[in-house]
Design a protein around this nucleic acid. Structure first.
Lengths: 217, 217, 217, 217
DNA sequence: AATGAATGAGGATTCATTCAT
DNA sequence: TATGAATGAATCCTCATTCAT
């Protein structure tokens, strides 16, 4: 029992081992329930070494968030070819997104659940990721409008809301796909394309859904 | 300093005070970071009384989840009149949903963030709520198809995915509306109707978005 | 759940109910692990009433010790007829002792285990009981000597030791009989008579066991 | 005031210090009344270190029981030379027993009082010790019979009872010797030899005490 | 580069006991 | 006679973090 004295390794490698252990532990236990003891043991090093390299629990968690956020955006970015039509770009991005979240459930749990649940400074960290995703979607909506030679005539706030909705739907479907056996990343992506793209198209054609002018409005 | 000795009150009243304090504390600090000390102080009673009435931190949190879930579903249910067309029902339900989450940010934080983040037995508790929301949306989709005299011909799994997407979009918009000054519940609801309803309509008319048959599929 | 409001009863009766509950609880859980809550509930009254009548946990436990000690000595005393020969008196006393301890395991646990384990003022309380038992045995030894027209020539300290040994053996056999199915009070008493009486006889006949004069003496 | 920061020591040493402190505290205060705070302070270390090494109050107490039980049986075993006649073996064992209990009153209190009073898992721990003592005595009785070329013709259950009685008498005399100034281990052992050995001798010679055939039998 | 030894601070939980009625 | 409401004070235990080597 007890890890044998760890072989000397270059710092960069050790740090990755620690981050691996931390992502797994934070993702499964949650930020607060995860203990530095467990992380150090899983990483196969002593606790003081974790502190020497990563400084504190807070810094360690922040490093996890950053690494996982970067991995996710890299995966999506790599899948999206700028030249394609907007819907094909979205389709490619969504498939990469669902594939990545399915393959990295712990990282996804950190980004989607843990980081948002435990206030500052973590919330700010994921807010950046979310903004990037929203910006990506916003750009696609604009591209789509341009492709259709349409002036969508959608106020900026409205577009922001739509992007939020799309991202939220994607997040929700990622959880659903992870929790439901037999649902592939491709299916999740197709579901979301169906759900979202037609509505966006209608909007851009100037056929929005109009609320009834009832008393409660 | 220090709370004055609490005046005697009937148990039922005290319990509500405790739940109020607990919802607020859990909602802001999170389940683990919230301390029973802080909850008791905010409720204006001593810690032992909290334990006498609510039993344990876990039970207290569960009671909070149940109370807030019930308040939310009651608000939505009260707003939806069964006789109306499906889109009007959805519209009414969404407005009630966004209104309630805007007025009860702590309760919403508990349901949407805290309860999901801290595993069993809390996750099961909110899962029930989510299933209810998904079932509600699923029923509306079916109603809409019937109203249009259409056989939507959508496989059940597909409908489930759509419902998940819609609910996820709603959750996301609730957070967005809470965080963005100047966005009303009505606007959030309208955004979601626009986003979702047209896409659903297209689907039911048999015009789904079709994925390209590329190599990566 | 929750005892119905207790019917008014004369104080003496209520006190006995409380003592019954306390003896049972203290005997099974131990002095410290027993809670006033549990005792009150088992007695079917509210906690303040227990305090009103018995004053404190310490006083309540002391009252239990006294009652059980008295019950035990009364049982033994009632069984011993003063006129009989010493061995018959001992035989009768032992049978009464083992019968009583078998029928009152909780009371016996209090006297034999709990009261001795928790220091003053309880230890003093049982010390009195033990002294009474030792005195009884001491008297019987003297009687036996007189009956045999012998001067046992045993120093007082020696007799005290023998009495302690006999009482200790009895206590041990009581536990053994309670824990071993199929061992009756009569058998336990016979075992002890066999074990003890012959040795005492030899002693009084001037045939003691003599220790070897070894180096370690 | 307050313990100075403890100097660094190898774990094995620290553990023994902790066990020393724990035995003393548990022996005097009792298992439940002893607080981990007090034990840590007496050991000269901080509480977390006690938990780090000994795990929990329950484990700490169990470790105490084991250590003290082992010390006692080792002391007795070392004193008994297998080749000697049975009565000399018993004499040697008893002297070692009374010597050890006199020199380790706290350990003896743990074994004889505390461990038995607080239920499982402690009772099981001392039960093993007691069985060993009973087995030792049982073997001596059989040896004695063999030496006398006698068939003791005692049923097994009867022998078990006699052994229990002897062990109980020894336990009782250990307490008595500890509590009575001027009583040496040698005297206690001699008293018990006198008390027990002659009776056993008579039994093996076929002269048991016979109970009267009275009505109550 | 790496770790065994050590702790300050705090958190959940329980309990004997009292007050007001 | 009897109780529902309430608490001060402890207790067990855990954890992030540091020091000396």
């Amino acid at each position: 029992m007890g890890a044998v004295k760890a072989k000397r390794m270059p710092r960069a490698v050790r740090e990755q081992q620690m981050l691996d252990a931390a992502v797994r532990t934070f993702g499964r236990r949650g930020y607060m329930a995860a203990s530095m003891d467990e992380i150090a043991e899983l990483a196969g090093v002593s606790k003081p070494l974790v502190y020497l390299y990563l400084n504190s629990k807070e810094d360690l968690f922040t490093a996890c968030i950053r690494r996982e956020a970067r991995a996710l955006t890299d995966a999506v970015r790599a899948a999206v070819l700028p030249g394609l039509p907007a819907d094909r770009q979205l389709w490619a991005g969504l498939r990469a997104f669902f594939t990545h979240t399915a393959q990295n459930p712990d990282g996804w749990a950190i980004l989607h659940l843990q980081a948002r649940t435990h206030g500052e400074p973590f919330a700010a960290e994921v807010a950046a990721l979310r903004e990037e995703m929203v910006a990506f979607v916003t750009r696609l909506i604009a591209d789509a409008a341009r492709e259709a030679h349409r002036d969508p005539d959608l106020p900026e706030a409205e577009v922001a809301g739509l992007a939020e909705a799309l991202v939220g739907a994607a997040e929700s479907l990622a959880d659903w796909a992870n929790a439901t056996p037999g649902v592939t990343a491709r299916q999740a992506a197709a579901t979301l394309m169906n759900f979202a793209w037609a509505g966006l198209g209608d909007l851009m054609e100037g056929r929005p859904w109009t609320p009834p002018a009832d008393a409660e409005g």
